[in-house]
Write a protein that binds this DNA or RNA. Sequence first.
DNA 1: CCTACCGATCGGTAGG
DNA 2: CCTACCGATCGGTAGG
Lengths: 217, 217
Amino acid sequence: MPFLVSTAIIFLFDVKQATVASSPDQSAHYSEKKQEILAAAARLFRDRGYSATSMRDLAGAVQLKASSLYNHIDSKEDILQAICFSTANKFMTAMKRIEDQPGSYLDKVKALVNLHAEIAAIDLTSIASLNDEWRHLPEPYLSEFLYLRRDYERRFVAILQKGMEEGNIRKLDPQVLFYTILSSVRWLYDWRHKHPQQQAKELPGQITEILLAGVLQ
Amino acid sequence: MPFLVSTAIIFLFDVKQATVASSPDQSAHYSEKKQEILAAAARLFRDRGYSATSMRDLAGAVQLKASSLYNHIDSKEDILQAICFSTANKFMTAMKRIEDQPGSYLDKVKALVNLHAEIAAIDLTSIASLNDEWRHLPEPYLSEFLYLRRDYERRFVAILQKGMEEGNIRKLDPQVLFYTILSSVRWLYDWRHKHPQQQAKELPGQITEILLAGVLQ
DNA sequence: CCTACCGATCGGTAGG
DNA sequence: CCTACCGATCGGTAGG
């Protein structure tokens, strides 16, 4: 099967590799066992969902009894909060950097698409909680999370709008475009789960190409 | 804010309105109360997830006591099964019709994008179970569901591939294109939940346009 | 980090 | 369609 990927787009995509990894990571403050618990929880939450994952399931995954988990975490909700916010903060930090970087707004859009693909590549399981399980956050975390999400969306849409005014991006409803872009990179973590053998780097390039240049010949 | 949508694409999209509604609907076999229960369950499963929805929640939503639900349904899993398969069958029926319809493979691709947008418009809440909650299906339903899903994907990808050979669609990895198309229409039900006032018909046209023609000016 | 255990809630049934 | 109730499992705590 022919497998043609525009080298120009691949180049554009590869410009900013490994920017996420160097961003501040508060998970460094956690003990090794707590990090192990959070990683196992993120995987279970992705595979079964937050509500269908019991503390006994989680304990088994890290070779502990359920009660021993509470030496490392405060509650089940505490785990979800840590997962959701550590990933959300990666996006917010990167957004600030992209807003401040020089270059056209089209460059910023490409950097944002790249960002989503990159975080999906590094932090494969946490994305599931960020996408689907945040609704189980207790207050006041839920409100705080929704605030971050709205803020991120507002700033993303502003960049798209500036790109349209700049003339590099077609004049579509910027919010529709925002959701289309986000949902397109969203399935990356699903895909990589199903096809672990495939080169991860090829995918973001292909998605970016489809979004930028379209499907028609 | 300018809001330009290609009338050509809108036309292409509107060609096949209301094809889903006329497809065979086995929910007609259900009693009125059972249909009410299934509709309420689909809504709760979307908003809270299957596992976080209790039978007491569901009973309250249809003004019954929990035990009375069991005069209409066999089990909680039975409800999930009914929701997932009734929607999955709509997709399979429509796939067969699109395969058999005359016209180019590009036309079939457009009809498929249209199909997803249409089912999302008609059956807003069930799509959530089809996307996210199917994993809670018990066997043998889980295997049967996964079989249907793989079959649908295989047939969709085959159409994309034929379209590429035909020359109307750019030669990309057809499976990557499949996932990109599906994820783009996937958020429709989310969006319509958040913006119930907006004309639903505008959205599929815009998404189709972004996918077909791309983002670049 | 474990054993032992708590009250609350779960899906579901008996019986009318 | 309800009241009353079942065993199982839930998140979490006491105490060592």
